[in-house]
């Protein structure tokens, strides 16, 4: 077989093995297979280069004078041969194949990066809230309307999920007559108990401050301000979307419960956040 043939075979094997590595990874990975494929992917490329250097490159042996060591340094003697005599012979097909092998190997070596994190999936669209979940405070106590003074605010969680990062919610009690919630949310705030996601719709900080004077929630990170009475629409700062509202009702025992998850994703924006419908939320 000619040298070109051998090189093409080596490179083709390398490409196939690299693709095999990607496929193996996608299918779940298998150490023995991965090891063998790695050997072929790297070995095929390596062998091809060795054959290339030995057989295809016109490399006349050259002489270079030894640098005189020691102090009386001089410029190194110029080599006789002009540089470039042994340049890589131009072989289009082989060069293309070589580039392909390099790219495939790069892909095969890069793909384990995907192990660093899960695919987002529906994760960003869901929180820990679900219909029927009791509203509990940071100590896990379920709350009744009577536990809340007018204009008091507390951080609440779905029962059994205290400290939930995406389920953290602000429960505020206001005079029901003051509330001017958007259409369709009439029943969401029994006896003036409104609940909004505590995760800022700007960049996700907990919206930590409540100004009772004008019923405003303030985010300390970039001063986004939300109007509690009007469905937490932003009134100042960079946040664009209102804090999502959690639909509440009072269950048979008088405790506050959620009637479902937040109707839209909580927290900072991401590009497909309006695509919630696809997977049924």
């Amino acid at each position: 077989m000619s040298a070109e043939r051998w090189i093409s075979v080596g490179l083709a094997l390398s490409i196939a093995a690299s693709i095999g590595l990607v496929v193996t990874y996608v299918l779940g990975g298998q150490p023995q297979v991965e090891g063998a494929l790695l050997a072929v992917a790297l070995g095929g490329l390596g062998a091809a280069l060795v054959v290339w250097a030995a057989r295809l490159v016109d490399a006349r042996t050259q002489t270079e004078a030894l640098h005189p060591t020691g102090s009386p340094g001089g410029t190194p003697a110029a080599t006789e041969e002009p540089v470039g005599a042994g340049e890589v012979t131009r072989r289009r097909f082989l060069l293309r194949l070589l580039a392909g092998a390099g790219a495939a190997l790069a892909a095969a070596l890069a793909i384990p990066v995907l192990s660093l994190g899960p695919r987002p999936g529906r994760e960003l669209f869901r929180t820990d809230w679900a219909g029927g979940a009791r509203v509990v405070d940071a100590d896990g106590r379920p709350l009744r309307v009577a536990d809340l003074a007018i204009d008091s605010v507390r951080t609440v969680f779905p029962e059994g999920r205290i400290g939930s990062p995406d389920g953290q919610t602000l429960l505020i009690r206001v005079r029901p007559a003051d509330l001017a919630l958007p259409d369709g949310r009439a029943g969401w705030a029994p006896e003036g108990c409104v609940a909004y996601s505590k995760v800022c719709t700007h960049a996700g900080c907990p919206v930590g401050l409540y100004r009772a004077a004008d019923h405003a929630l303030l985010c300390p990170c970039h001063q986004s301000t939300f109007d509690v009475l009007r469905g937490a629409v932003p009134t100042f700062g960079p946040a664009v979307r209102p804090l999502p509202q959690l639909p509440l009702e009072i269950d048979g025992d008088g405790y506050l419960v959620a009637t479902g998850d937040f109707p839209e994703p909580v927290g900072p924006p991401f590009w497909d956040m309006t695509h919630d419908g696809e997977a049924g939320g």
Partner: peptide
């Protein structure tokens, strides 16, 4: 949140970098 907001790639990049939802 800033990484998450990158068009198209954001959620993937954020999850790869942080290993999941913050």
């Amino acid at each position: 949140s800033v990484v998450l907001g990158i068009p198209f790639l954001g959620p993937y990049l954020a999850f790869l970098l942080f290993g999941g939802e913050f």
